[in-house]
Structure formats: structure tokens, C-alpha cells
Design a binder for these strands. Structure first.
Lengths: 137, 137
DNA sequence: TTGCGTGCAAAGGTTTTGCATGGCA
DNA sequence: TGCCATGCAAAACCTTTGCACGCAA
């Protein structure tokens, strides 16, 4: 197993995401966000760091929608996340976090009846949010 | 609203996906599949056609996993798909279709209690399949 | 000192776009 | 004939990789 050093860059990236734990950011946005704070990191470093932090469980990675790349988010280790669901509106692009115990049934059912272990952190349900549904009418 | 012509290329791509309605294909795979049949379409044409067919509802588009691109599948209009769920194993990459009435509860709950209209065709749940779970032990 | 991390530049893969030509209606 | 579609090549994007230098432990 390889060892990991604690570096300024890793701290910066992780801090940035921890301070905005309710949002998802693309690699580009993270880089831009840090740049706004006067910190300029290499592109490769950002990608390598994100990959590392996802593998250690510090971050979650979500596959991007059409055209855009993947997005990353600080992974809260709150046990409440067992019932946590991620939603993304196809129309306005908003990303929602939903706490609802109703979902536990689904995960359990999937695991017990279908042998599939759903990754809560990775999974995003796509659809249309309330505001956009109303706007369409 | 723009009009659409019925062209040989569109028919070919749609036929290919309809004949393999149980599978997902990347743009590259679709092109390769047609090439095996002696049909060589331009790259841009394939992408433009796929985008068009998704917008008309003939196809579903799924965001690809890390590294790979998006995949497309023939959109069956079977009402049974109301209970249809898509799963993708992060380990082996296998794509599963699962028919289970259990999910209707979730969709209904989402719509009624949270105002979010989930798109069945677009949504993919990520996790680990049975075989890979066993292999890990 | 040792070995991992960083930054730059270049490369890789997927998808989009510009433009002239081709084809449907 | 009038648009829309196709094909090629080039470009745009996002992400990864190679390599020399820098830095944590």
C-alpha cells in the first residue's frame, strides 16, 4: 500500500470542498474557486488529488450530465446519509440532497432481494424538480 | 419547430439499437457495430443522430462511468418500464435492467411527497453487483 | 535522504463545429 | 427547388501521462 503525504495542495482542495459541502464542483470549478482565493494549482494536480480523495472516501464523485465532466463533493460521514439521496434536475441543473428514511427500504430491498449493493454516494437520480414542472405548465 | 427528414443513416442507427434493445452502446460501439455490417457512417453523423433520437424520445442516454463516454439504448415504450430500473456495477461495468414493482413506490413517493419527477429512462443506480461482492470476499 | 507530489506540456479519448457537398420532400 | 443531413477535418473539452524538479517525513 502506498503512503500519502499531507501537502498544502491537498489541504486546500479538501478545505475548499468541505467549506462548500452542500455543493458539487467540477475540477475546473474547484480550480477556479481556488484561483479566486489567489491560489493557482496545476490542472494535473487537481485531477490527481481529486482521484486520490475519492479513493480514500473523503470525496464523492458524480458522473456529469451531457457535455460537462464529473463533479465532486465533500463526503460527509454523517450516518444520516444512509437515507440520503441525490437528485439532479435535468432542466435547471440544480442538485438536491434529500434526507428521507423511505429510501432505506429501497437499498435494503436491492441488497436482500437482488444482491445489488447500491452506492449512496455515487448515485444520482435524474428527473424534473418541482419548480421546473410548474414552469412547464 | 424544425422538421426532420427520414434518412438512411437515421434508420440504420435506430434499427441497430432496436435490434439490441437490451443493451447500451457508446457512440463508438454503435459505429463499430454498423461497420461490421459493412456500413460506415461519419463520426459526426452518429453523434448528431444520437442527440436527435434522444431528443425525440426514441433513445435513452446514460452518462458514462469514469473515463468512458455516454451510452445509448433503444427506448422501449413498454408500460412495464414504469417499474424498470437501471443498475450499473462499478466493479465489472455490467449494466442491469431490473423489473420490480417495488420501485413504483419510490417514484410515487418522490413525486407526491417531494415534487420530483424521476426520469426512469435516464436514471442509473451505481453500486456493486452480486458476483463482484462475492469476488471481493 | 528517500520517495511521493507538483507543475508543465503533451497526449488521449470523446464530442462538437464549420463548411462544402449530398439527399429528402 | 429549398432545406436539412452528411462527411471530413479541425477544434473544443475533459482528463491522463511523462518527466524533471520540489517537498514531506
Amino acid at each position: 500500500m502506498q503512503q500519502h503525504y499531507k501537502t498544502r495542495q491537498r489541504e486546500l482542495i479538501l478545505s475548499f470542498l468541505r467549506e462548500h459541502a452542500e455543493c458539487c464542483f467540477s475540477a475546473k470549478e474547484i480550480r477556479a474557486g481556488l484561483k479566486d482565493g489567489g491560489i493557482d494549482l496545476g490542472e494535473a494536480t487537481v485531477y490527481r488529488t481529486l482521484t486520490l480523495l475519492v479513493s480514500t472516501g473523503s470525496l464523492s464523485r458524480y458522473e456529469g450530465a451531457k457535455g460537462s465532466g464529473a463533479t465532486y463533493q465533500y463526503a460527509t460521514e454523517n450516518p444520516a446519509c444512509e437515507h440520503h439521496l441525490h437528485l439532479k434536475c435535468r432542466t435547471c441543473g440544480t442538485f438536491f440532497h434529500l434526507e428521507c428514511s423511505h429510501f432505506k427500504n429501497l437499498w435494503d430491498h436491492m441488497a436482500e432481494e437482488h444482491g445489488f449493493d447500491i452506492s449512496r454516494a455515487d448515485t444520482v437520480l435524474y428527473g424534473t424538480c418541482e419548480s421546473c414542472r410548474e414552469a412547464k405548465v
